[in-house]
């Protein structure tokens, strides 16, 4: 028994049909072709599937697709404005804050949510905010630096 869901993703109205027990992550990836959010665990422990739901940072693996009905979803695919990367995206490239890159979309979405709420975070705030985004490659050092560089740039803007 399938359900039709009408929702907004990155500002676009979209409809899809899904099973009632399907996660938002599976719907984004499988139904809408938005594979930027990754499944690293499926249990909310790694943050690779981070998106925002009505502006609130969530793991899309812990949201049912049907719950998106009438809501607003934002994913990594919506971060850049046309050809212009978001300051966080540019900072991650400039500061080599990614190695394999699988955690990067989730971290970018999470960091964006942080800077919208806390434009001038301490390193400790960045680290605790991102504690739910596992990265196995970098040791987080360059990630924290990149977030701070983007934050500084966004404060100047």
């Amino acid at each position: 028994m399938s359900v039709t869901v009408s929702t907004t993703v990155n500002g676009d109205s979209v409809d899809f049909v899904c099973a009632p027990d399907e996660t938002l992550l599976d719907a984004l990836r499988g139904r809408l072709g938005l594979t930027g959010a990754k499944e690293g665990c499926g249990t909310g422990d790694c943050g690779a599937c981070s998106v925002t739901l009505n502006g609130r940072l969530v793991c899309s693996c812990l949201v049912l697709a049907v719950e998106a009905e009438g809501q607003e979803i934002a994913t990594v695919e919506g971060m850049a404005a046309g050809e212009t990367l978001h300051p966080l995206q540019r900072a991650f490239i400039d500061h080599a804050a990614l190695q394999c890159g699988i955690c990067t979309p989730g971290i970018l979405v999470a960091a964006k949510a942080l800077l919208e709420k806390t434009p001038d975070p301490s390193d400790e705030e960045v680290r605790y905010w991102l504690a739910g985004n596992l990265c196995r490659c970098t040791g987080y050092d360059k990630i924290v630096r990149a977030v701070q560089a983007a934050a500084a740039e966004m404060r100047r803007a």
Binding site: R29, L98, L108
Partner: peptide, 21 residues
């Protein structure tokens, strides 16, 4: 030198295709 990696943009925009993608 510390140049930008060529796969950087794909990886920060979610375009890079991994095993499950």
């Amino acid at each position: 030198t510390r140049v930008a990696r060529p796969d950087g943009v794909d990886k920060v925009t979610g375009r890079a295709l991994y095993g499950a993608d």
